[in-house]
Design a protein around this nucleic acid. Sequence first.
RNA 1: GGGUAGGUGGCCGAGUGGCUAAAGGCGGCAGACUGUAAAUCUGUUCUCAUUUGAGUACGAUGGUUCGAAUCCAUCUCUGCCCA
Length: 404
Amino acid sequence: MTNVFDILEERGYIEQMTHPTEIKELFGKKSVPFYIGIDPTADSLHVGHFVSLMVASHMQKCGHKPIILVGGGTATIGDPSGKTDMRKMMTRETIDHNVACIKKQIEKFVSFEGENSAIIVNNADWLLDLNFVQFMRDIGSLFSVNKMLSAECYKQRLETGLTFFEMSYMLMQSYDFLHLYETYGCKLQMGGNDQWSNILGGVDLIRRIGKDDSYGLTFKLLTTKEGKKMGKTEKGALWLDSEKTSPYDFYQYWRNIEDESVETVLKLLTFLPIEKINELTSLKDEQINKAKKVAAFEITKLVHGEEEAKKAEEASNALFNGSGNLDNMPTVELGDNKNISIVDAIVLTGIAPSKGQARTLINQGGISLNDNKVSDINYLLSENDFADGYAILKKGKKVFYKLV
RNA sequence: GGGUAGGUGGCCGAGUGGCUAAAGGCGGCAGACUGUAAAUCUGUUCUCAUUUGAGUACGAUGGUUCGAAUCCAUCUCUGCCCA
């Protein structure tokens, strides 16, 4: 069987490792239980979790056992890494709800059946019942504050203030690893590169209690070439839930990605063979759009299924190339009253959040109806605009809505 | 516990009684240029009404004043220094 290490390395997932040679050797053996943590801060996963799930999937395909840890316990604190402010605390109920929702999305990436079936664990199950004094004596005594403070992730927070509450996040995450090590024989913790110090904490903890076969590995974070996190949109995060981010918008996000990122997303977010990817990314200038189309389709297919991906692609072709059918473009039903003002229509579709902004858009020439630029802010929609049974409202070059 | 500096629009950050819906930057959106890319340039960026206008907003509450983000009181949160 292929050593998954080679796959991860070839596709460029790996950022840092605690013990490169040992890890490679470990992967060559039979089933290795490994864990990846996910914070249930919302009722859907977003692009930030995508790479983790891809890695988990690759790992499982090569015969390893994924343990998906949802941080039901730690989410009540919030990881201070890289944050400038303390996160809002969440109630147990919302967290439980989120965990249930997230579970469904994870199922698209790893299998919960068969020999190396994935399991989902919730650290609330062991963290919430801990006895504070005992925990501090057993675990807390093994952590050096000096060392923690020198970690990059805390340095930034040191300037703006950091509570002890938040600082204990590392202890808990480390304890998670220890717990999984002891109960499932989990040898490896993986996570985004922002998790490096927390992961090191866990590896260190296990070594301090006398075991030397725990390892940590982090993977690349998806960033634009300016180093910003990828997956931010005007409406916030790019969600994996079709209710929060439609498959069409999801497709469009990847379709519009900057040239420099095509190779990265193809390697990290699709299962296309590396040869195929190299072929696509060797395209230059305008031709690179072909690679973007493939990326958008493949990535959408993974998250929303082939059918939705095809629909998104069709809608995209219809709108930008003028061919194909318009059935699958985002549609807003106006009901019986079609004679509303253009401004109301814009707000109704969510193209702009307020009437004022809708007017601004019109004044700037950013709105068109059925391919005619709208210049009158008092324009009223009429039957004529629905000549084909629908009207197409367009903001800028890329945002379309069909009105029926 | 004592001292001290602060809390401004999505973020950063000016602003110390009327000219402040609040400079500047970032981010967002649109226009131009393009390849549904990047970079660049221009415009725009609280809500409602658009002609002027109105409402809400500068941690919270109350007060002084013709008039407050700006002054006073109380509360609350945060940084820093001392213990």
